[in-house]
């Protein structure tokens, strides 16, 4: 069950890569947020996400002590893997866009992650069940941050309202990628690593997302669960799917080439 390329690796890389890629996007805001307070807040959130990615990557290293260094060491996994080896949802690799998109995407992801972590607390793989307990507590603050901004922007009129509606539309279009199933998920369920595959989270997520958007009159933008798990646009270049199977957009390639720029200049050196 813990063999390389197996279901545990898939589950851990999906978790790690979601956090790594979104944490990277968050870190891009540092010094460019609309308020100094938000520079500070997003830098904190980015540090949480990146630290969580490191936690999952260390779990992988511990689960596969005999794997080659490039497939086990957290830094090597972070800086040397090509996009085809990343398992994040495409939603998270999209560029930051404006502040509305950043806030809506974060909230959509944080609601998903909250459900995922609750499920993983029941994982049969004990090190994972124990780790998510602590991480879930830190993630809660991110939910509060996202909700606060949704309410603030939702109360405004004019440009803010228009941007918010556009952001919700863009995020909902990519949301199916969060629930994308891959062949390893069935194995992960069979092995007791996860209680259910990601598609099982679509219905509770849609309900939670509608509840967040209802006060600002945008609940109808949330796709029904059946669309979330069977999106017709699929994994073409503009589609929401493919991320969990290593099929990504050019946005991830660009992100990874910045991420690895220094490390790849000499992967054998100490940095």
């Amino acid at each position: 069950m813990t063999g390389r390329g197996g279901p545990l690796r898939h589950v851990l890389l999906s978790l790690a890569d979601d956090e790594l890629v979104l944490g990277h996007r968050d870190s891009e805001w540092t010094a460019f947020a609309p308020f100094i307070e938000e520079d500070v807040a997003l830098a904190s959130i980015a540090q949480d996400e990146l630290s969580h990615a490191a936690v999952y990557l260390r779990l992988l290293a511990e689960a596969e002590p005999d794997a080659p260094e490039d497939e086990r060491d957290p830094d090597r996994l972070t800086f040397l893997r090509g996009p085809e080896a990343f398992r994040n949802a495409r939603l998270l690799e999209r560029p930051n866009g404006d502040w509305a998109y950043t806030c809506v995407r974060h909230l959509a992801y944080d609601l998903f992650d909250d459900l995922r972590l609750k499920a993983l607390a029941r994982s049969g793989y004990r090190p994972l069940a124990e780790a998510v307990d602590r991480l879930a507590r830190e993630e809660r603050y991110h939910l509060v941050h996202g909700r606060t901004w949704l309410a603030r922007l939702g109360e405004a009129e004019g440009e803010a309202r228009e941007r918010l509606a556009l952001a919700v539309g863009a995020v909902m279009a990519d949301a199916p990628g969060l629930f994308e199933e891959s062949p390893e998920d069935e194995l992960a369920v069979a092995a007791g690593i996860v209680p259910a595959g990601p598609a099982a989270l679509a219905a509770p997520w849609a309900e939670a997302m509608r509840a967040e958007l209802a006060p600002i009159g945008l609940a109808d933008r949330v796709p029904p669960p059946e669309t979330l798990v069977r999106d017709a646009r699929g994994d073409g270049p503009k589609g929401p799917l493919g991320g969990r199977r290593g099929r990504h957009t050019d946005d991830l390639s660009a992100l990874l080439s910045a991420l690895g720029e220094v490390y790849r200049s000499d992967p054998r050196a100490s940095w």
Binding site: S27, T30, L50, F79, V262
Partner: peptide, 14 residues
């Protein structure tokens, strides 16, 4: 921040 060469360095610069 986006190019720091290890996870530890990235967190520290951030």
């Amino acid at each position: 921040i986006t190019r720091a060469p290890t996870l530890h360095r990235k967190l520290a610069v951030l």
